[in-house]
Design a protein around this nucleic acid. Structure first.
Lengths: 163, 163
DNA sequence: GTATTTGCAAAAGCTTTGCTGCAAC
DNA sequence: GTTGCAGCAAAGCTTTTGCAAATAC
């Protein structure tokens, strides 16, 4: 069975830990925890959608007003290195910036609509199978896997045919 | 069965058309064929590996010395729009530039080694199956699909363990 | 002859870096 | 008290754009 991952359901929210999970994970890795990093990590954790660096900066500034752009990029680099976040291109729908999301146990792929810009997430056993296959048959030690699809979402494909 | 696509084998070379295929395709699309476009297209077609814009420019200049950077980007945009080439990120192994390759009938994915930079290509029925699944179950009209994997190739994974 | 494309140069967009002072442990 | 991090400002790299001159058809 395949399914679309929607935003957090009620039951997921209920089981969510009170404290920011990413923050806990970072602490266990022996990383120095500055107020800036705290603000950035909490912002990433609570984001409703995929954040780019500039958006992350402006949101984090609500928590700690004097965070600098450089700190954002350095912190993102750190979290990537620790394997706590994933970096996405989202088919470069809006320029060359990157987007970030908390890494989950379950890999998923992103469907980006060229027309309306909507991003859908998708996962299926076939995707997981493909991942195992790559590791096994090609003898490749996978660290990151990024599958992005560009095209038209259901709604936009329908509208395209009308107009 | 899955397999790694190696560089052209002898038999493939024998069946290759004498004239640049891309060029033929472009002509059938009713596109104005300038000397610059000709040089760029021939360079892309004959490339042994994935080219970024700067490399493409310098190689194309061997054929037509006064091609400009802007023309390279505009031509790449054109070929992308016509569906004749694919744009890759190759996990941003070397900065944010893009890489280009002639689009083939068969989709394939790219395995990028973070250590040695080698790019392997890979295709399997599972990948094709996943593509069909995305279209069907998610009702998404796929235009481009980009699957990139970062990690360690066989050789580098082995060396990593030793050192 | 007309519509498109090119070259040039400048700008734009995103990310990185050097350095000095500040903060976490 | 050390060691590493933040802020600032500047530069870096890739890609895009406006416009006048050149070129394909």
């Amino acid at each position: 069975m395949s399914y679309i991952i929607e935003s957090a359901t009620e039951s997921q929210l209920e089981t969510m830990p009170k404290r920011c999970e990413l923050l806990n994970e970072v602490e266990t890795k022996g990383v120095r925890l500055t107020s800036q990093r705290r603000a950035l990590i909490e912002t990433i954790q609570q984001a409703d959608a995929h954040l780019d660096a500039a958006t992350l900066l402006s949101r984090a500034r609500l928590r700690d007003p004097k965070i600098d752009r450089a700190t954002v990029y350095r912190t993102l680099e750190l979290l990537k290195r620790l394997g706590l976040i994933d970096e996405l291109d989202l088919m470069h729908l809006n320029g060359e910036k990157h987007y970030y999301e908390v890494k989950t146990q379950k890999d998923h792929l992103h469907l980006a609509c060229f027309r309306c810009g909507e991003i859908e997430e998708f996962d299926s056993p076939t995707f997981q199978k493909l991942k195992r296959e790559i590791g096994a048959k090609n003898d490749f030690e996978i660290q990151v896997m990024r599958l992005e699809v560009g095209g038209l979402c259901r709604r936009c494909a329908a509208q395209q045919k009308v107009s």
